[in-house]
Design a protein around this nucleic acid. Sequence first.
DNA 1: GTGCGTGCAAAATCTTTGCATACGC
DNA 2: GCGTATGCAAAGATTTTGCACGCAC
Lengths: 152, 152
Amino acid sequence: MARPLGPLEVGLHHDGRRLTPQRRRVLDLFEQMGSGSHLSAEDVHQQLVAAKAKVSLATIYRTLRLLVKMGFLHELELNEGGNRFELASHDHPDHHHLVCVRCGRTEEFESDPVIQAGRAAAEHVGFQLIDSTLNVRALCPSCQKLAALSPN
Amino acid sequence: MARPLGPLEVGLHHDGRRLTPQRRRVLDLFEQMGSGSHLSAEDVHQQLVAAKAKVSLATIYRTLRLLVKMGFLHELELNEGGNRFELASHDHPDHHHLVCVRCGRTEEFESDPVIQAGRAAAEHVGFQLIDSTLNVRALCPSCQKLAALSPN
DNA sequence: GTGCGTGCAAAATCTTTGCATACGC
DNA sequence: GCGTATGCAAAGATTTTGCACGCAC
C-alpha cells in the first residue's frame, strides 16, 4: 500500500519539484522534534548525520530555504547581512519594529500591552524580564502595490 | 575649556578603559543618526570612513560589542551562531519566545494582545501584516540564583 | 612609562554557488 | 530519458583573533 501523499509531496509536485529522501528527512526531523525546537542548519545536519542519513550541509541549506519558501518552516530572527545595532535610548526602553519584508523599510512603535504581555509571560514561568522586542513582518504600502502587479 | 564628561567617559574610566577617538566617533554616529536607525558593523565602518575617520572594521566590531556591554547600544535580533528554523505549525501562527540570556533556555508562549498590538501598529502606517514575533530577553530561575552569587 | 586599544592580516564561522553526477518522475 | 537535486569543493560574506605598535592616561 502506498503511503498517503502529504502536503510536502503535493506542494513539491505542484511546482515540478521532487521529493528526495534528504528533503523528507529534514522535514521529518522538525516534526519529530516538535514545535518547540529551534534548529540551526548545522544542528539539522549533525542530527541527520548522527541518524545515519546521507546529506551534505549544502543540501541542508538549500532544503531549509525551500521549506521556508513553501511555508513548512519559519526562519527566526533573520538578519539581512549581519547583526544590526541601535542606540539604547533610555526614554524608549522597549520599542518594536515593523519591517517591510520586500523593501526593508522599517518603522518603530511602542506598545504598552506588548510589554505587559511579555512581563506576564515571563512571570508565569518564573523568568525575570530584561527587555522585549516585537518584530512585525509586513508589506509597506508601496510594496503592496508592486506585489499586486508582479506577484513574486 | 574642557568639555563636560559624558557617560561614555565615566563608564570607561570606571573600568580602567580608555576613551579613544574611534570609540567616540562610533557612539557619535549613532547619536547623530537618531534612535530610528539600525546599523550593521559594515554600515558604521563605511559611514565613518566616508566622514574621514581613521577606523578599521575590526575596531568597529570590538567597539560595538563594548558599547552593547556597556549598555549604550542594543543589538537587534542576535542569532547566536547562525539563523534558526522551526516548524511552522498552523495551529500556532504567531508565537513568541522567552529566552534566558544567560543559559539560552527558551520557552514559547502565545498572546492575543501582542498580535492585536502588532496588527494595530501595522494598520496605523498602512502596512499589511504578515506575522509577528515577540522576543523577550530574561533570566530563568536557575540563572537568577547563579547571577546573585557571581555577578558577571 | 604602563598597558589598553588599534590596525593589519590571517583565521574562523557561516552560507552560497559552480559543476559534474545521481536519481525522482 | 529529462531535468531537478545532490555532493563536493571553492568562493563569498561576516566576525574574531594574534601580534606589534601607538596613544590615552
